[in-house]
């Protein structure tokens, strides 16, 4: 998979990075959004654990070592729920 170059449109770069996060077995995250702004890459969405969140950074840095990644992905809560919803 090629790294970033000056000729690649940011839209294609975002699509390529998003596919990498979905298809790399270390991440396998289909729901992470990738936004490219110049040299900066912003991640949003949610993952099940802090380790999964850190793995996103590892995979992106491996694909594009110079990229500045802003990992805004949320770690999903796993506590007991609040009051039930009653459906009549």
């Amino acid at each position: 998979m090629p790294g970033p170059d000056d000729t690649e449109a940011p839209q294609y770069r975002a699509a390529r990075l998003r596919r990498a996060l979905a298809e790399d077995t270390r991440t396998a995250e289909l729901g992470v959004q990738v936004t490219v702004r110049g040299e900066h890459v912003y991640l949003s969405g949610s993952v099940p654990s802090r380790q999964r969140k850190e793995e996103l950074d590892h995979v992106l840095h491996e694909k594009e070592p110079g990229t500045r990644v802003h990992n805004d992905v949320r770690v999903v809560e796993a506590g007991e729920p609040g009051e039930p919803e009653v459906i009549e």
């Binding site: 809560e77 796993a78 506590g79 007991e80 729920p81 039930p84 919803e85 009653v86 459906i87």
Partner: peptide, 8 residues
């Protein structure tokens, strides 16, 4: 945003 949710 929790381990499960409940519907009555």
């Amino acid at each position: 945003r929790s381990a499960f949710t409940v519907y009555g």
